[in-house]
């Protein structure tokens, strides 16, 4: 085994996990968030089954507030690869006008958590792949690769099933489901190095470019469409920025950067002084907020 590099080992582990799900789970789906981790996961799924197409659909939970470039990228990728891409939005939330500016945590709950639960129930998926990594956040660091959810999609962190070697237990009862994280053991650095090695296509927002932004609450927010209302003192300026993570544009902080190539991004990541989640406005809540959301059914 020593002949394989660290990245080769991570790739092999992820492919093993993805194939196990395809072989053992009744109705799997791969959640696709359009971000870099999802791009890596999609790439791994294509490799895992080649020359066959992945034997499961992909699904994007669209909050309707994603960057435009993300949506373009998603549709282009699905077409290019010939995969089945389900797009689901919580229409009840859209009709009520739930938005990230006015509704804060309720927005995340309605447009992400509830939307995800709706979609999983509607299609009857029994296993959903997610691109979560253990190095992202403390409660994720504790999660199993095959993570069990009860009929209400809730995670019980105090009572996780033991996960030994790579003997994954995929058995569930009616109504229950699994979340599966093939990238559990990858770090942010691994993701970038793998993207470079495999020449994986990612959303251009990851590369530094002049973009219209405002500074709000210490974050750099991109003005992606006219739904974003400016405060009187705010001014849209053009700045060379890039994004370390991608999500809903009003909740995603950019960083000023000149890194417009993969090598430059990797250089910046290696020397980074803050972890990537600082750029997610959503994670700036109290310690334990991620765990609380996950217990409620958030991915």
């Amino acid at each position: 085994m020593t002949q394989l590099t660290h990245l080769d080992q991570l790739e092999a582990e992820a492919i093993y996990i993805i194939r196990e799900v395809a072989a053992e789970c009744e109705h799997p789906v791969m959640l696709y968030s359009i971000g870099k981790d999802s791009s890596v996961m999609l790439h791994l799924a294509m490799k895992a089954f080649y020359p066959e197409k992945p034997p499961f659909p992909f699904m994007h939970i669209d909050t309707t507030w994603k960057f435009k470039e993300m949506i373009d990228f998603r549709d282009r990728k699905a077409k290019e690869l010939g995969i089945d891409m389900i797009v689901h939005s919580n229409m009840a939330g859209v009709e009520q006008g739930i938005n990230p500016f006015e509704h804060g945590p309720a927005y995340t709950d309605v447009m992400k958590t509830q939307a995800l639960k709706q979609a999983l129930d509607q299609y009857g998926f029994t296993a959903a792949f997610g691109g979560g990594r253990r190095d992202e956040e403390k409660s994720r660091a504790k999660e199993r690769i095959f993570s069990f959810r009860n009929a209400n999609h809730a995670w019980d962190p105090k009572n996780q099933k033991p996960e030994m070697w790579k003997l994954y237990n995929t058995r569930i009862n009616q109504g229950e489901s699994m979340r599966v994280f093939p990238l559990s053991n990858w770090t942010e650095k691994d993701i970038w190095q793998y993207i470079r090695k495999e020449n994986i296509d990612i959303v251009p927002l990851y590369f530094a470019k002049e973009r219209p932004i405002v500074e709000r609450g210490g974050n750099i927010i991109m003005v992606d469409d006219d739904r974003m209302k400016l405060e009187p003192h705010e001014k849209v300026v053009l700045k060379k920025v890039r994004f370390r993570t991608l999500g809903c544009y009003p909740l995603t902080g950019g960083v000023e950067s000149k890194a417009d190539t993969l090598d430059a991004i990797i250089e910046e990541t290696l020397g980074a002084v803050s972890s990537e989640r600082t750029s997610r406005v959503i994670d700036h809540e109290a310690t334990g907020s991620m765990e609380r959301r996950k217990r409620e059914g958030y991915f």
Binding site: R134, D135, K138, K142, P157, T187
Partner: peptide, 22 residues
């Protein structure tokens, strides 16, 4: 390392935490 709320409250470790460093 003690990432779960119950762990911090009780000051104990309940489940395995994975850390990555180089």
């Amino acid at each position: 390392l003690d990432g779960l709320m119950a762990e911090r409250e009780q000051g104990i470790t309940i489940d395995v935490a994975y850390r990555y460093f180089t």
